[in-house]
Amino acid sequence: IFPSVLSPEQFVTTLIEAEPPNVLLMNRPNKPFTEASMMMSLTKLADKELVHMIGWAKKIPGFVELCLYDQVRLLESCWLEILMVGLMWRSIEHPGKLIFAADLILDRDEGKCVEGILEIFDMLLAATSRLRELKLQHKEYLCLKAMILLNSNMFPLTMGSDDPDSSVKLRHLLNAITDALVWVIAKSGLPYRQQSNRLANLLMLLSHVRHASNKGMEHLLSMRCKNVVPVYDLLLEMLNAHTLRDH
């Protein structure tokens, strides 16, 4: 389905239907955590969520119409931001806690057992409190998450791709998701001026998500280099994309 033929309402409905299931860790280690056991839990969960994230992206109207090269570049750029914004949404009603999964709920202070992770937990908790303050609505969250994916790569995507129309399609998609977010905010009944403020406030939050993701990526790479945690499968591929880029 090409996004330009969908109304903003239809676009949002498709985003609701595209939502991935809530993932469980299943074999949560006993407390207290050690550095290795916490990192193992977090990476196992991330790997499971990543598989569902690919399925979610494919259900965003127009995403699979982009060339495969662009689909890969977008996902490898934004995967940790998407995981983090999902974590924030799950944690929004639970101040001071990070709801990684229903069976992996961490208090801020539990971050002390992994070197360097407390700073990232604090960034995530701060961004989550801001979303709580703004009373982020579910449909707004869905639009922001899709926007993170589609806006994740600032470099010309089609270099190396065989489909010159792909970047035009991506621009159309970004316009469609912007229209959808504007429509969701307008439907809330806020006065026009406050609608613009809300849009700006929500979009400004995205730079904090990007910042937390960059810090998280750096942290995960260092944990892997120090052999604190082995990284396998899809997570390894996604992490390697960032290692290669950094070099």
Binding site: H52, I54, G55, K58, L68, V72, G160, D233, M238, L244
Partner: peptide, 23 residues
């Protein structure tokens, strides 16, 4: 390495069925 080489699993997931099809 090329994008295809470094993203074998991602390519497979993008080109094949839904995540529920993949064990």
């Amino acid at each position: 390495s090329s994008l295809t080489e470094r993203h074998k699993i991602l390519h497979r997931l993008l080109q094949e069925g839904s995540p529920s099809d993949i064990s």
